[in-house]
Design a binder for these strands. Sequence first.
DNA 1: GTGAAAGCGCTAACAA
DNA 2: TTGTTAGCGCTTTCAC
Lengths: 328, 328
Amino acid sequence: MPRKTIRDLAKAAGVSISTASNALNGTGRTNAETIERVKRVAEEIGFRPNALARGLLTKRSHAIGMLTNDTYGRLTLPMAAGVSEVLVDHGLSVFLCATNNDPRLARLHLETLLDRQVDGIIFTATRLDLTPPPELAKLSIPVVYAFAEGPPDRISFFPDDAQGARLAVKHLQALGRAHILHITGPQDYLAVRVRAKAYRECVGSNAEVLFGDWSEEWGHEAIEQIVSRREKIPDAIFCGNDEIARGVIDALRDKDIAVPGDVAVVGFDNWEVISRQTRPPLTTVDMELKEIGHRAGLAILGLTKGETIPTGITRLPCRLVIRHSCGG
Amino acid sequence: MPRKTIRDLAKAAGVSISTASNALNGTGRTNAETIERVKRVAEEIGFRPNALARGLLTKRSHAIGMLTNDTYGRLTLPMAAGVSEVLVDHGLSVFLCATNNDPRLARLHLETLLDRQVDGIIFTATRLDLTPPPELAKLSIPVVYAFAEGPPDRISFFPDDAQGARLAVKHLQALGRAHILHITGPQDYLAVRVRAKAYRECVGSNAEVLFGDWSEEWGHEAIEQIVSRREKIPDAIFCGNDEIARGVIDALRDKDIAVPGDVAVVGFDNWEVISRQTRPPLTTVDMELKEIGHRAGLAILGLTKGETIPTGITRLPCRLVIRHSCGG
DNA sequence: GTGAAAGCGCTAACAA
DNA sequence: TTGTTAGCGCTTTCAC
């Protein structure tokens, strides 16, 4: 059985097509009783409007595209969930397009999205300093950047890395740790530089930072370096992500250095498969990716309604998740 | 500047609307030269057909919905990537709908998808024995189940857990391990029972299986149990997932039991953030989730074209990823 | 208050 | 081979 059309509805309710339409949408001037009846009949016969037909006419598809540079990694997904969460109740659907960092694929997806008359596009990336597809800047529909930096006249949401780093370092200081070391990822990541700078501002500008990569292995190696110096080891380590932190904790245990007794450790990301499973469980900074998704979704929603929303980068606060790797 | 319509194209190319349409779509009988010209002009003026209008008329939206029970977890995402990968080149887009295991949300998403005239729906779950939304069974559009079991008259794709388990166990046996233990997850998971059964068929029906949960902690605890028995410990352990395997490996190292020297360990999932980072790196079974996504995408594609595709459950082979936790 | 009619951008008969 | 015409299902003037 094919879907009921508004014609079927009009016939069944004994009204004209336009009255049926008005009754359902609350447009025009319609008798309250008629509205009631049309709605009841619509329910009875299972009428649901065809979104394609409606979109064709109103020029609003009530769909948005989410363009992401990776194959839905651990950063993109919480954001996508956040976006979807706020939009579903407003009747907006989300096309998920993974570009896999391939410009050709990005263009392909983008064209398809425009053909589908999406009301807006959210671009998300896996690192803040990845250059978004330049085509996005020229679009006449709303574009919001999440975990990526768009042009100044667009809206971009970032986690506040500096604040997150301060959160971590100040927590360690409040716990009485005086000699804090920072072991982090590759220096060419913007987030790495921002976090390192904030760290230095808290503990003094001659504070030591060890740059490496994002792996557990680097955590091990860094500890090896520290210990082999035969100096006094730090009493706290602020790690650039949870994987490094896990490596650090494991390496310390291998050397019979107690965590948090001798050395307190803080991570960054709150990637739970890691942060919950270190021994002891890891105190870490959560970037609130889902909240970034929420905000991006709300921004798109507002823009499509013609609201004015401040452009430029908005930094959203991180949250410290306290577990046992710092004591307490 | 509004988008160009097929009218603009027809005018610019000096042909009628229908000729323009035929030229672009290869329908009807059109002069090769005209086709050429129309296509060139379309390119020049930047004409792109409105997918909404086309869909309204052809009753094919060239979009599908992907309904998933979780907030895009680690199982769903590789599958989603696989689906999208095979569909993008056929001009199909994917609506991603996370139901968060909430039946109300599932229904809401489903209705929206139908309103949008999606050509088909792929349902994916985080466990094989999760009951898919019953509404799906009654739909008149194609529905494919990936990592979930649909009704017998629909298409379902599963990883071949039994084959995966055999792969792991036979690998250990080929390496000369004679006393293999299975430490796995909760017995109420179908996958757990299937893997355990396959394991027992390989090593003998009195073989021991320890059921627990999916955590690293359980891996530790299981090793504790084994060692405290003061019997001869097994020379190989087949773990139900990578998290358990990581716990097992860590616990063995804590007890100075060499991996793979004394005990070889195999995991299940190939969740790389874990399997690459264990010491030694973990040999593990990969369920080829992306391939499941590929197959689901191709199945939907075929169904929307009216092809006949065998219904019921198709089990897709797992692959053994060899690292160092078994030696070699 | 309600309905007839026009038309969103496109495809597909059918006529020319 | 091409153009004319009639809609797809809906919203939206504008008469009545």
